[in-house]
Amino acid sequence: METRIIDKKLDVLRDKLLLLGGTTEKAVYLAMRSLTERDSELAQKVIKDDKIINKMELEIDQLSVQILALQQPAAHDLRFVISVAKITPVLERIADHAANIAEAALVLNNEPQITPYVELPKMAEIAGEMLQSALDAFTSEDAEASKAVIKRDKDIDKAYNRVFDKLLSLMLDNPAVTTGAAHLLFVAKHLERIGDYVKDICEMNVYLTEAAFIKHKKRK
């Protein structure tokens, strides 16, 4: 079979998305490290590198529009371009959350640590694994793997509730830690949101592979 013109464009689009995915994954990982290792220099780098991610998002947007306008994809090709176009801003938002975690780290690293970071790194680990698995599932067009990732979001939500309770009681016990605890609460919220965004990526993979919209549907 001859290679179609559109195949080359779709390959470039796929590569660009995976690069964005990998860069985003790394941003989340480094942002959390900047917090747990109290490395403000690393936090600065994560914040600075967010611009690179924004640029990648724009490139993918432009290529997606170009393929839609000039190649007029249909069927699987169409679903692929639509999926990429919808996953791209989701990744960019995940990276924004990473930058926000890094910003919180800059504040927190300047103060004495108010509590050992136990639950937050766990949340970050789950979020990181979910993101990686979601991108792998997209690459291999494995809808079942995506559905499995979606289920893991509950683990992050549970961890978030535990962190919330813990930080609340810390604040009630000792109002002097309120500022630091509030920043940590934001970090937890960022991680919780990342889990939600990963779910969106998974839903788009189910659309790509099964042509089914599973968004806004109740799951068991």
């Binding site: 079979m1 179609r4 559109i6 994809p73 249909a74 069927a75 699987h76 090709d77």
Partner: peptide, 9 residues
């Protein structure tokens, strides 16, 4: 059908 409408042949 998919192959035809996506220009695979």
């Amino acid at each position: 059908t998919e192959d035809y409408i996506t220009g695979r042949f």
